[in-house]
Amino acid sequence: MNFLNINGVKKIFNEGKESESIALKGVDLTIEKEEFIVISGPSGSGKSTLLNIIGGLDSANEGSVTLDGVEITALNENALALFRRENIGFVFQAYNLIPVLTVKENIEYVMRLMGYSQQECDARVMEVAKELDIDAYLDKLPDHLSGGQQQRVAVARAVASKPKLILADEPTANLDSKNGEKLMALMQKLNKDEKVTIIFSSHDPMVIAKARRSIVLKDGLIFEDKVR
């Protein structure tokens, strides 16, 4: 049994309508624990769609996704929300954070949903904040941070609750190359230290080069899948 099994996943938007577009045409993929994978490919090739379906944020028209033995494509909306909370960390392109909560509260948000005690949250927040070099901003509001700092907080939140899998859709797209590289380096470090599986998408060759395994999508199909 593989850690993540993606089996014949098809995604058609606006099926039957004039605006119908086929985003994924049958994707098969297996991923092992603790892998660090980048998904790249031209715009519109289906990167975001694939990540969303893996993360249970969007449904597939055909095929299945199984994460650590749970077929997430079969779960209902409520069960999915709980499954995501417990198992998957998300980092989006930008504006990941809840604006009224401080950095610390943002990082511990998912842990609190999961029922961790305040002491457990405090300890874990300190740990990841140090790792991601944001421990100086814990009491600030997201608005007062730079884009790079905000993305690091988002990664901290994603990793804090110890999910099995972190999905990051173009996490560096809104950052300059220096901040982008720093974020990638930190994610790589987390991948090793926390033993968390990370899948992210990117356009940026510099960023793509950091991943051990690179999957390239083209027109909704896997075009290339190689391990360096």
Partner: peptide, 14 residues
């Protein structure tokens, strides 16, 4: 809408 979307994505129930 986006803020709520992210809250739901990371496991907040509706």
């Amino acid at each position: 809408v986006r803020e709520f979307g992210i809250m739901m994505a990371i496991g907040t129930q509706f």
